[in-house]
Simulated assay, not measured.
Amino acid sequence: MSDKHISSQFDAELNTISTQVMEMGGLVESQLHQAVYALTHMSDESADQVIAAEARVNQMEMDIDYGITSTIGRRQPTARDLRFLMAIGRTTANLERAGDEITKIARRVKSIIESGSPRSLPSSELRIAADMAATLLRKSLDAFARLDINVALDIIKEDNAIDNEYNGFLRKLITYMMEDPRTISPSLDLLFLAKSIERIGDHAKNIAESIIYIVKGEDVRHTPMSHVESVVG
């Protein structure tokens, strides 16, 4: 078998794995939109749809992991191809964890509906943050498809905006709970929702960092923004 034929087979395998990642990402993104709808409209049905998709997301992660392991074992890739496969593993792990957080949101929404908790608390900010997280996840998937490190850098910066929304929302909830102890239980529900949304933003940022790792060959996790900017150039 010629080297060219082997190379074309390897490229086909990488393309297949990349397609599977995008399909998984699309499913997680759909979950998030359903969860935001469930939160906005207090929809028990939409929350159920999110929860029902969790098993499929988990299975997709396992299938992609098997494909990565199989490809590495048979092809013994080097340099950028190996980085690419490793980064895909990180990406699918982050997508699966984002899916877990989205499922938590759906379960929390169902809990709020069942408890009949008052809705006079500042949930509008929560919806804004959820929309921001959804946008960030979509951008991370688009950037992954194109291996666009400049968009990846923007995502890492934009994650700070979600963190700021979370911190501001947390301060507001603390004020509500201090002023009226009756709001403690529903405030805690919203706090858990906010934390899950903040973590979804973190997972989108992690995917962006994996894109930079693929293209530049440097791991920028846990490094200052100035260093990330210098790597991207």
Score class of each variant (00 low, 15 high):
Ile64His: 04
Gly99Ile: 01
Phe84Gln: 03
Met60Ser: 08
Thr91Ser: 09
Leu85Cys: 05
Ala79Ser: 07
Asp142Ile: 10
Val57Met: 01
Ile51Asn: 01
Arg97Ser: 06
Glu61Val: 05
Ala130Phe: 06
Gln31Met: 15
Leu39Glu: 04
Gly25Met: 09
Ile68Lys: 08
Arg83Cys: 02
Ile112Glu: 04
Asp63Tyr: 05
Ser117Trp: 10
Arg97Cys: 00
Val57Glu: 01
Gly26Val: 07
Arg80Leu: 05
Glu125Ile: 09
Ser70Tyr: 09
Ala47Thr: 03
Glu125Ser: 13
Ala152Arg: 06
Asp131Met: 12
Ala53Arg: 08
Val50Glu: 02
Gln76Pro: 02
Ile72Tyr: 04
Ile113Ser: 05
Gln31Cys: 07
Tyr37His: 13
Gln76Thr: 08
Ala52Ile: 08
Glu23Asp: 15
Thr16Asp: 14
Thr135Val: 10
Asp148Ala: 09
Gly116Leu: 05
Asp48Ser: 10
Met24Tyr: 11
Lys110Gly: 10
Glu23Trp: 10
Gln20Thr: 12
Met62Asn: 11
Gln20Asn: 14
Ala134Arg: 08
Ile51Trp: 04
Arg80Cys: 01
Ser18Glu: 15
Asn58Glu: 08
Ala130Val: 05
Asn94Met: 02
Ile149Gly: 03
Asp142Met: 09
Ile102Trp: 01
Lys139Asn: 13
Thr19His: 14
Met24Arg: 12
Ser123Met: 11
Met24Lys: 11
Tyr37Arg: 12
Ala87Trp: 07
Ile64Asn: 07
Leu82Asn: 00
Met22Phe: 14
Leu141Glu: 08
Met22Ser: 15
Ser30Ile: 03
Asp131Ala: 14
Gln49Asn: 11
Arg107His: 06
Asp81Gln: 04
